[in-house]
Each structure stands twice: as structure tokens, then as C-alpha cells.
Design a protein around this nucleic acid. Sequence first.
RNA 1: UGUCCGAUGGUGUAAUUGGCAACACGUCUGGUUUUGGUCCAGAAGAGUCCAGGUUCGAGCCCUGGUCGGACAGCCA
Length: 566
Amino acid sequence: MNVQNTSDASGSFPERPRNFIEEQIEQDLKSGKNDGRIHTRFPPEPNGYLHIGHAKSIVLNFGIADKYDGVCNLRFDDTNPEKEDVEYIDSIQRDIRWLGYRWHGDSRYASDYFDQFYQWAVLLVKKGKAYVCDLTGEEIASRRGTPTQPGQESPYRSRSVEENLDLLDRMRRGEFRDGEKTLRAKIDMASPNMHLRDPMIYRIKHLPHHRTGDKWCLYPMYDFAHGQSDYLEGITHSLCTLEFEVHRPLYDWFLDHLTEGPYRPRQIEFARLNLTYTIMSKRKLQQLVEKGVVDGWDDPRMPTISGLRRRGYTPDAIRSFAQNVGIAKRENLIDVAMLEHSVREDLNKKAPRYMAVLDPLKIVITNYPKGQEEELETINNPEDESMGTRRIPFSGEIYIERSDFMEEPPRKYFRLAPGKEVRLKSAYFIKCEKVIKDDKGNVTALECTYDPETKSGQTTRKVKGTLHWVSAKHAFEGEVRLYDRLFKDENPGKNKDDFMASINESSLVVRTGCKLEPALQQMKAEDKVQFQRTGYFCADLKHSRPGAPVFNQTVPLRDSWGKKGK
RNA sequence: UGUCCGAUGGUGUAAUUGGCAACACGUCUGGUUUUGGUCCAGAAGAGUCCAGGUUCGAGCCCUGGUCGGACAGCCA
């Protein structure tokens, strides 16, 4: 067997046009750069769960490694122990594996290189390219200038190499309090690029690190770690989002002063993913979790990988979505309908069909022999005959969907109404003879007659409507959770912090007392099914119990009738 | 009155690198159908941000604008 290096999912997507990054990679390949080696990396900070935007980056990085016979690293950018947690490391690794990707070798950590970074910092000091600064945070900020105005140099900028070396060593040994001193690169306080105005390299944090323990009280800034980590790992192409474009000159500056030889990781930036009715910022997602708006990072309404997984999305659907949105540099806001399309497309082929009545209305079939019951055969998936058939119990009392009956139907209503006849899927035709109501006039049940000549497969007579149903006696009652978008605004992340104001309070509807066909009782967590005529559903990972699955609605079926604004 | 990046149907990406603007999602028709699903057939919808220029020919090259985004954390 040919074991894939980075993915167990290659070859499952059709040839598509190259994106601009692949074009540049092919140019590099053509020119013989890096001896034809392709090495990418996915570099998350372990301070939150992965979301669909990360999936775009994962698919890009692992996909390119796959496509060009290269490899892809997983590296945690863990330079800030204040915000990071092993819980996130575990979840990130789990999500990447679940998506079907295998990183090259062991997981890497920026913290693996802390010794090297420190030596590099010392080297910079020795070269007169870095200095210890005593300015406070506010002082540094006030002297930084603005994008249109140059900053002022720090009074500590001209300390001698010896003094800097001594101070840096004492910083390392813990002689100073948090924030008392920093190490800064000596570049250019007047640079039009803010990142070149003597950026901070090290800051003091007396905090244990999840990997290095108490070894350090000094931690490198992301900018002093990221580019060098790529360098140390031999990354050929560092793919990242647009906001890091302005950092690139700084990464180059560090490498120019710290390393010899021509090798440089090539950074290429692309636009991050934005989805309608969704927020993608980890900080904001964390707020939803902390304020209890959602059940956790893996709440089925969350755009996180684990949320989508619980919702019933498949790795195939997410990968195909990530391929379809494409890679470019312009800002984008992708219609969430495209995500939904990807999962319907996948589940249509894979999910077996079942009968489930979410909002039951009882029907008594008056001419069906008292006490009789029978088993009817039905196909599991019309899209895939190899999925076989099963039997469903039928009897004289059944449930149908309340919305499948109208006392005064509009034109072109193909469902049940007084005097009208419909087909029960895989069973018989029934005709509505009588409407039973309570004191208040609410419909409580229907009396129908069935035509024994119309048993499934045995009649050529046609009728316009087909309904799903469940035998009352054989049904089991279950819980089904319906989801809607979490936000009412198309772009809730557009404005800074008022995204909470646009939360959709009815994004979760829990339906209890749903009537489900017996076979559904055997469903185990993460089993994916189609409820006939309703949508795709998935047995919930957290709430399902043996013999008592709880179903999450992954996505409703397309509905060209409901859409008519009826 | 900074630097960098971007601009193609409603949305997102293409356009074999200067040669009839295509594909997907979405929308709308019609057909098939024991899911108002799927599938099939078809339609509408952009003349490529604006103004000049080069060229036989420009979405693509040049010049100048306009609009949008990123950058002023001891976050990443």
C-alpha cells in the first residue's frame, strides 16, 4: 500500500485551476530552488480551537505538500504561556487528524527552539543590533509614533554591548519583574513600516510554560520566533494570512542578521476566510463559550472544526468546501450556503434514509384490519444500491408531519387535505376522510382510508404527493435538535465588538417527542442519516445514550416548495 | 497627509500569461422521480472600479485617480 505522507485523502478531488500560490511554487520548482524540495507548515497558536478558517489553511498547506511530493509540519507557536493551554494542543491535533491529514514527523513547538532564539538574541546584542530597554509599556507606545508620523528613539538605545549583554543575562536569570525591561531590535524608529520601529524581541513573564516549565522567565515575541522557526525547520514556503504581509520585512531582517547562506523560507500571504452570518475570530468565539451563549467550543452551532463535526459535517465536505472557495488576496465574504452545499453533496451519497416525524400528527386508518401489522421493505439509499434495503413496521395508526396536512390547502399543495389522496413512502395510498379537532378547533388527528391495491411496488397508479410516516405503535420517542445560524447579521464581525447584539436567540430548537422509526434507535454517536424529506441528521456525540440517540440537524434538505414563500 | 496589499455577475474563484470573460454556489424555468431531495435540460445575471495611454487587439501592460483592507499589543 502506498502510504501518504500528509494525507489519507488525496485523489478525491477533481483537477482544478492552480491558485496563485501554486503558480509561484511551480516557478520555484522550475528554477530549481531548494533542490526541488517542498516543505510547508501549519502553525497554530494553542490558545483556542480550530475553526473553518483554519481548515482553509490546513487544506492549503497539506494539500500543497501532497500535490508537490513534499511534507507539511505541524508547529505550535507557543511563545505566550499566558494564553496557551494543553487542552488546545490536544484539540488541534485531533481536529487535523480527523480532517484526514498527517503531519511530517512529530508535532513541533516554537518552544523547542527557545535556546536557539536566546543565542540569537545574544548574537544580535553583540552585533549592536539589539538593546535592553527600560521604558514602560505606555512609554514605548507613546514614543512609537503613528503610521504617518515617525517615532522617537528610546533613551536606552545606545547602551554599550557589554551593558546590554549583562542586562539580558540578568533578565534571563529573573532579576527583574514582569515588564521592567525588554529586549528590542535596533532598526529604525522612523521607518514607515511600524514593525521596523525597534520592535520588541523578548519580554519578561514570570510564568511557567506548558513545555519548558520554569526554565524561562523570558519569552520571545511571535515576530522573533515565527520566521526563525520556519528557517530552522527548513520550510520552503510559509503560507499565511494577509495581516502578516507587513511583518515580512522584519522576518527577513532577523534572518539577514542571524544566519548565513542564501536559504530563506518564502512567505506568501493569502486572504483569510470569512463566512456570512458567522464570526471567525478566536477571541470572539471564546467569548461565546465563556458567556455561555453556546455549549462549548464544540457546540454544533460553532464554526469550529469540532462544532462542525458534532453538527454532522464530514471531513470530505469540509475539504471540498475549502477547495471550492479558492485562494486569493482580496477580502472575501463567502455565502454560508456554499458550506451547506458541500455537506449536502457529500451526505446525499453517503447517508442512509430513515423515517422521522418531527412534529407528529396522528392518523387512524379506519379500513385497515384491527390489530394487523406488517413489515414493508424500503431502500436505504436511492443514490447507492449497495446500501441495501430494510424493513419498516406498518399498522393502522401512524404519525405524519403536521405540516403535511392542511385543511384549506393552497394551489399546488401536493400533500394531505380533506378528500385528498397521497402516497405513504414505501407503503400505501391513503385518503383523508375526516378531521378530528379539540374544543378550540385545533386539529388533533385525522381519519383516513387506505387502498390495499396500492402497496408499494404493486401499483402503476400515480399520485402527486409522497409523505414520510412512522407507525404509532412501533415508533420510539426521541429528541431532535434543530439549528439555525448563530447571528442575524450577514457580517456580524464587521464592526469591532457589537457582534453580541446580533445573536440569534432561536439558533437552537430542541424538539422532544419526535416519532422515530425503530431502526433509528440503534444509531450511535456520529452516525449520519437522512430523515426522509427533512434533512441530514447526526447522532450527537455528547447527548446520545445507548438506545436513546439525540439527533442534531446537520442541514435541511433543499426545499423548493417552502421557498416559494408559501 | 506614511508604507504595503487589493478591486472580474448577487457570492467566490478562473481566463493556457496580450486573442470570443469561464466554472462553482445562489436565483429562475422545464423534465424525471415512491424524498417538492437527487438527477437531467435550459435561462437570467458581469463587459472586468474610473480616466487616459501602448497595441491590429487590453480583465491582463503603462500613467494618474477612486474605493476597500492591513499596520500605532510586553497578542499571534
